[in-house]
């Protein structure tokens, strides 16, 4: 019969301390998030009014307003995703499904990894030189979106590749066995099964777009005036600050911290909304 062994007091103490430390790190992680959200809301919510959300800043009346920035933000998210999605998904499909040469694939993947690690300030410089100056787009939301599209490209490629790899071989064989060509198999069976991963990539990309300041300050401008989104020309020429840039402008240039915190509150809600919308879209796409 095995002898019962009681833990020694020292081991008991060690276990208790360890458990406390682990609990502390978990509590700190959760607590920090709650604290930040609470503090931002505490400072920002009082300044939130319908007028603040639904109008542009007025220097004559001395009122702050962020409607243009909300529109700018949504416009930049949509436009940069529209640009990056076909590019990123296309690149991922090529790399995972078509590329024959292992070395080429490895090189492109390495390049994408490296791109993902480059500080955004460098993208900002490239955007200024390439899109604003060389291509003559000037400081516009279009130039900003193009730059952000390049910046988020690795995210989309990676996420899509990962989910393409998880599509069961049985689905592929089933389609090919029925006489489907490769592209038809990819379009009708493989891509629909990878929607989850692509949507995840989009959430991450949208998150980076919402959070990006440096790139947009240099490529999209700082204006807080309302832009014209009703015509193609207006869309091409629109130039101004997204919410994060507006936050910077209010905090740094106007030293209006009440407004800055209100913008921050709106940003928090927007982030939650994007996440919800994306997961909803993913569910719908999977069902259809």
């Amino acid at each position: 019969m095995a002898r019962m062994r009681w833990p020694s007091p020292r081991r008991g103490l060690f276990n208790a301390v360890l458990r406390l430390l682990l609990w502390l790190s978990a509590a700190l992680t959760g607590g920090l998030l709650v604290a930040i959200v609470c503090y931002v809301c505490y400072r920002g919510l009082p300044g939130l009014s319908w007028q603040f959300l639904s109008s542009a800043e007025s220097i004559l009346q001395g009122t702050a307003g962020i409607l243009p920035s909300i529109f700018n933000t949504l416009y930049v998210i949509i436009l940069s995703l529209l640009i990056v999605l076909p590019l990123g998904v296309g690149a991922a499909v090529y790399l995972t499904e078509y590329a024959r040469s292992r070395r080429l694939t490895a090189m492109i993947e390495f390049a994408a990894e490296t791109l993902a690690g480059i500080p955004s300030m460098i993208y900002a410089l490239v955007g200024v030189i390439l899109f604003c100056t060389a291509l003559g787009l000037q400081k516009t939301l279009l130039a900003g979106s193009l730059t952000l599209a390049i910046m988020t490209l690795p995210t989309i490629v990676r996420a899509t590749q990962e989910s393409l790899k998880t599509v069961p071989k049985a689905y592929r064989e089933g389609a090919l066995g029925l006489g489907a060509g490769k592209w038809r198999m990819i379009r009708t069976v493989v891509l629909p099964s990878s929607v989850d991963g692509i949507v995840t990539g989009c959430i991450l990309a949208a998150g980076r777009v919402v959070g990006e300041t440096a790139v947009l300050m240099y490529t999209a401008g700082l204006s807080t005036a309302m832009q014209d989104f009703s015509t193609i020309q207006g869309l091409m020429k629109a130039s101004g600050s997204t919410l994060t840039v507006a936050l910077y402008v209010y905090a740094k240039e106007r030293a209006d911290f009440a407004a800055a915190f209100s913008v921050a509150t709106v940003l928090l809600f927007l982030t939650v909304l994007i996440n919800l919308a994306a997961s909803l879209a993913g569910k719908c796409l999977r069902r259809g």
């Binding site: 689905y171 064989e173 089933g174 029925l178 069976v189 629909p192 099964s193």
Partner: peptide, 26 residues
Amino acid sequence: LRRQIGMVFQKPNPFPMSVYDNVAYG
């Protein structure tokens, strides 16, 4: 060729779509 010579696999592998769309796929 694969249209004339069909195949059924070891493990059932219906596509993640409706029964109708599965059969109509070919």
